[in-house]
Design a protein around this nucleic acid. Structure first.
Lengths: 170, 170
DNA sequence: CACGAATGCTTGAAGCCTAAAATATCCGAC
DNA sequence: GTCGGATATTTTAGGCTTCAAGCATTCGTG
């Protein structure tokens, strides 16, 4: 008879019916979270120091940069994976700073389209050039093959998570 | 109706048509961020729904659970990778809820040690059991070998990022 | 012992973020 | 046309988060 693995598991876990050994997944998640947090904190710090701006502001500008026709607040909210109310405030601040402008949609009076102003486009170009270098710099410790492998595995992880999200199986 | 974040399109997908070029590292970073954000948002949502709590609260309890002797606010702040002021407020709320207690350190009157109360220990046990299952559930789409490979690559990424952090080259 | 630097924590101002409720508009079925 | 459900946005209340400034205490060094 091979090892009796159940002897190493406490009764409570065994009774729960769930397969034990979930510590692995937990460790993976914690490491994923640590990596992201480290990079994100560093990028935030540099954005603040170099450009006196924040990551959400930068992200919103990035969304608009990629959508020359502009985006509604709702589209921005979906792409940034944040709430609608969040975008309302963010857009208000950016508009106040003259980086974006809002226009009521001609076809739908409920919706407003956000666009970069000339100044916003200029400012974002300035920021994004440097931002891209920062990211590359932080990830230079990985060989190209490692980056490719990591990208692929994260793609698998993303698919797994999406499959497990509630309210998506219907 | 509340915002339904699960329906949101992630930033990376929205970027699929972005101008090509030299953006491997950027794509990798965006995918990493997307994965983390997806999991984190789902965990936050479930914590709120099932336990009427938040991720930072849960994380702080988790830190204390792992440190039976208690931790000072500063140690908690370092382990959670958040600011001191953040922990001050978080601890105040948890203490108010009776889940943790604070005690002035006998050896250093500046420092305060945080500990779980009996109730805090019970509550965290209840939450963490389920939390662990959630994580495992979200990552079941990955084969064990994939999880191991991802864990290793993230370890490499973490090392790369740490090497690139400012003020750490000395 | 004294004093300046370092450490532990708190406070305050500002911004980020969510969920839920409220408002306005659109659209389709009758 | 009009009514009801869906959609786009804003508002509100509350929590999270940071940075910077400030207070209290400790430590190292002269």
């Amino acid at each position: 008879m091979p090892d009796d693995l159940t002897r190493h598991v406490d009764a409570e876990t065994a009774l729960a019916g769930a397969p034990p050994g979930h510590k692995d997944e937990l460790r993976l998640w914690l490491r994923l979270l640590t990596c992201t947090t480290l990079i994100e904190a560093e990028i935030r710090r540099r954005l603040r120091r170099e450009f006196d701006t924040t990551l959400p502001r930068f992200d919103l500008l990035a969304q608009l940069e990629r959508a020359p026709g502009g985006l509604t607040l709702g589209e921005v909210s979906r792409r940034m994976m944040v709430s609608n109310g969040n975008v309302t405030g963010l857009a208000a601040r950016l508009e106040e700073e003259g980086l974006i402008e809002r226009r009521v949609s001609p076809t739908d009076r409920r919706a407003q389209t956000l666009r970069l102003t000339a100044r916003g486009r200029r400012e974002f170009a300035r920021q994004s050039r440097v931002h891209e270098d920062w990211i590359a710099e932080l990830l230079t410790g990985l060989a190209p093959a490692e980056r490719a492998a990591l990208h692929a595995l994260l793609g698998r992880a993303k698919a797994s998570v999406r499959a497990g999200l509630e309210g998506e199986e219907a």
